[in-house]
Design a protein around this nucleic acid. Structure first.
Lengths: 221, 221
DNA sequence: CGTCCCCTTGAGTTATTTCAACACTCGTGG
DNA sequence: CCACGAGTGTTGAAATAACTCAAGGGGACG
């Protein structure tokens, strides 16, 4: 019954999204919406990848845990973005709700069937994955060759861009999530943000709310 | 005339490749082969992305240079692999020949035209980019969360896997290339390899030739 | 034989991590 | 209404992995 109700609200929910990728709409997918509470698992690493997911509201992280406990956040996904689209049989990351969120689920078999028939749909998949690849290439440069200050700085600017509101942003994720995304420790992220605040590059009305006072300096940092 | 001659040799060259992605064959592309000397630029960052490239022989690196001189190697491409496939108008990396190499060039417009018509072709692009995305996600985990020894160790194992020969490999790239790929310095790469040799995890008949004696230890490192 | 490039090695420095303690917020239950 | 505890974030001091700077070795090639 969740599926039934969800189907009804799906197109309305999509219409609200502002992500650059309107892929899900482009192929008019049958889908249903599911709600997740903060820290709920949306799917597990190695689990069969039978669905593709799209964020309606809230935020999602994809995670890998190494055997010794080290944790790596592969990406954050904000409203309008698609995640969990795999080429193989299983998911390569665990996906978890960063905040309470609503997620649209689309059967992968539907998408693949459509992609096998309509070139447009298949091109949509190509575009979608390419954009994710580009994002990852940029992120790799950050992680591989930049200092802690540069990583945190560009992260804040990137998040401000993605959430739309120019200067102010509410980070949905914890310092730990940010650290594991940037390849740093929670202490380093915290210290860096404090330093930015001292330098008047940002304001921190609360620890999750950031106002960018000098984005130039953040990127250059 | 290079194009004419090349067209003739193209399918023979492809037949030799063993890469898992037989994309180029799948859509029977018109293409021509071009030779590059070591360190030649194949295409520049920001240059119009009018061609897609496939390694016939030799090795290729994709590179970005930051304004302050820091250098980042995004990927190495070995025979059979496709690179330079973009979703936007321009290339996002510079591509250079790691060693003397032969590269097949395919007009992007041909590929896109085919992809717009045949779903199979478009799915091929999707698959190709997805595999690159997966590789990058794994690499990101290395860079973000692993020690120098772990990075170098998995790099050697990965290269051994990709070049096919189980235990012995000839690295086509310099220590500097490896360092810039792994987010380390040349000295750290060198020291790490020396340490692996002392630990009998590898043998180094020469500095470019590596024999994996204990791959387990390299990955665990 | 000399030169250039690449690689290695050593010694000292530094950015980031680690370990430890403390502060803040928020809900729950007495 | 306050006390409590858990979760989250900040700060300090010490440790360390990796970097920087500097020098020297070795092979390829003219």
């Amino acid at each position: 019954m969740q599926a039934l109700e969800a189907t009804k609200t799906y197109s309305a929910a999509c219409a609200r999204q502002s992500g650059s990728i309107q892929f899900a709409e482009a192929i008019s997918l049958p889908g249903f919406v599911k709600s997740f509470a903060r820290n709920d698992e949306i799917f597990a690493e190695e689990a069969p990848a039978d669905f593709v997911y799209k964020v309606i509201s809230g935020a999602v992280r994809t995670v890998r845990i190494l055997s010794d406990g080290r944790r790596h956040v592969g990406a954050f996904h904000l409203p309008g973005e698609v995640f969990g689209l795999e080429i193989g049989a299983v998911h390569r990351f665990t996906a978890e709700a960063v905040s309470d969120c609503q997620i649209a689920l689309i059967r992968r078999s539907h998408i693949e069937k459509a992609a096998g028939q309509e070139a447009d749909t298949a091109c949509g998949l190509w575009t979608l994955v390419s954009q994710e690849l580009n994002r990852l290439q940029d992120h790799m440069l950050q992680i591989g060759r930049k200092s802690a200050a540069e990583r945190v700085g560009s992260f804040l600017v990137e998040m401000a861009d993605r959430t739309g509101r120019d200067r102010a942003l509410d980070l949905p994720m914890s310092r730990l999530d940010i650290a594991d995304y940037l390849g740093l420790t929670i202490e380093t992220v915290s210290r860096t943000m404090t330093q930015f605040e001292r330098d008047r590059a940002i304001a921190l009305p609360s620890c999750r709310r950031v106002v960018l006072l000098d984005p130039e300096r953040l990127c250059a940092a």
